[in-house]
Design a protein around this nucleic acid. Structure first.
Lengths: 224, 224
DNA sequence: AGTAAGTGGAGAAGATATCTCCAGTTAATG
DNA sequence: CATTAACTGGAGATATCTTCTCCACTTACT
């Protein structure tokens, strides 16, 4: 699952790593994925090193800063998220496409705290991560438009609602995770129920944020 | 608003405070309420002191630990929450009572981060705060039962859903707060829409946590 | 066997946070 | 007023964490 095109990873520009060094690099990435996923990006590199069974020095030689490690880990995940949006957009039933996308995304975030912090809080951002994230906005817009036009989605729903919903489901997941890891689905179900258009329902009273405001909100969380 | 029965507060057991000391005590409590409300309980007592315009020493003399200060501040708030539940229970329309309660509670949490951390994360708990919080569970149960029996609430909803919903709305509030402080209402509206019983809707697929699990989940968040 | 590459982990350096201490100030009392 | 017990501010002692460096020692490769 986490083993992909890593074997021959050339590592930036340098010469190929010695065999033991390459192995340790893998160990570090693997440990980081695990630890960041479970405990978030707050974990220190000493913590990652301990979990990987190597010395801190080794971690710092391979990844000069925490950011470098995070970037190496999550750039790929974000690309995968984008593919999920593409797939959702290709779904024959617009509503079901939206539902699938939200479920898939929430599932990823719920079980990967680090990914949540990178994607939703903009923690430890870097250019490649930022751009991957920004590339997702137009896809969201298309996804919403399609579902709205098909008549299944409340017409007041905007793309700006999606990140908020993800935050909410993540909060539910965090709270319930220790007990029943899948309970967040219940709350996404409830939200989806509330988002579904019903002919005789009154419209929502409170307007959503504008798209610019969402960007700002993400920027603000980032600062914290 | 924050000025209540404070003037003659006898302070634990000791002799009455000198006038300047009493004034400073008020200043500290007032500043703490403001700072904890806006920035959460993470603020240091040095920070509270600065905001209150007194020296750290003064804060520490009056409140030997951070816990003592927090306890003095929030015990009252929790009592107020309980009254809100009582009021909701007395509402002639069970569904509307539930809606009012959730709105009121969410409003308080949304604009008081410290209260959220004490009530929902169990941060810096102490006996009186714990017991005030525990006293609310039976009220929630009654509230849910009533709304369910009236036929407006989905029958699968349990008291254990309430804290999760509060976490979700709080997450929405945190995200949107900097832009439009009231936008969380939109998401509570959506949730309530999803919680409302509709004759032809399929039941929720994912079960809720049991009450014991909720307590444990709160305990776990507490540890963190 | 020689050597360049790699290793671990003690500890330097820098942030914060909590809490103490005391020389100096101020309110209350006769 | 003068006396004094209460109170004050804030520098700094102590402790805890993180990040990151350095180097004596080990290991893979030729």
């Amino acid at each position: 699952m986490t083993e992909s095109s890593r074997q021959s990873d050339p590592v930036e520009g340098g010469r190929p790593l010695r065999r033991d060094a390459a192995l340790n690099r893998e160990r570090i990435l693997h440990a980081a994925r695990e630890v960041f996923g479970q405990q978030g990006l707050g974990v220190t590199l000493d913590g990652v090193a301990r979990h990987a069974g190597v010395g801190v020095g080794t971690v710092y030689r391979r990844f000069p800063t925490k950011e470098a490690l995070i970037q190496a880990l999550f750039a790929q995940d974000l690309r995968i998220r984008q593919e999920a949006a593409d797939r959702a957009l290709a779904h024959p039933d617009p509503w079901q496409g939206l539902v699938d996308f939200l479920m898939e995304m929430a599932a990823d975030l719920a079980e990967n705290r680090g990914l949540y912090e990178v994607l939703m809080l903009g923690a430890h951002t870097s250019a490649p991560i930022d751009s991957a994230r920004d590339g997702m906005l137009p896809l969201l817009q298309a996804l919403i438009r399609r579902a709205r036009e098909s008549g299944d989605l409340r017409p007041e729903v905007t793309p700006a609602d999606i990140p908020v919903i993800q935050h909410m489901v993540y909060a539910a997941a965090q709270f319930t995770h220790g007990q029943q890891p899948d309970t967040w689905r219940r709350y996404l179900e409830i939200l989806l129920n509330g988002l579904r258009r019903r002919p005789d329902d009154p419209p929502l009273e409170t307007p959503s944020l504008s798209d610019e405001m969402v960007e700002q909100a993400m920027g603000i969380s980032r600062a914290e």
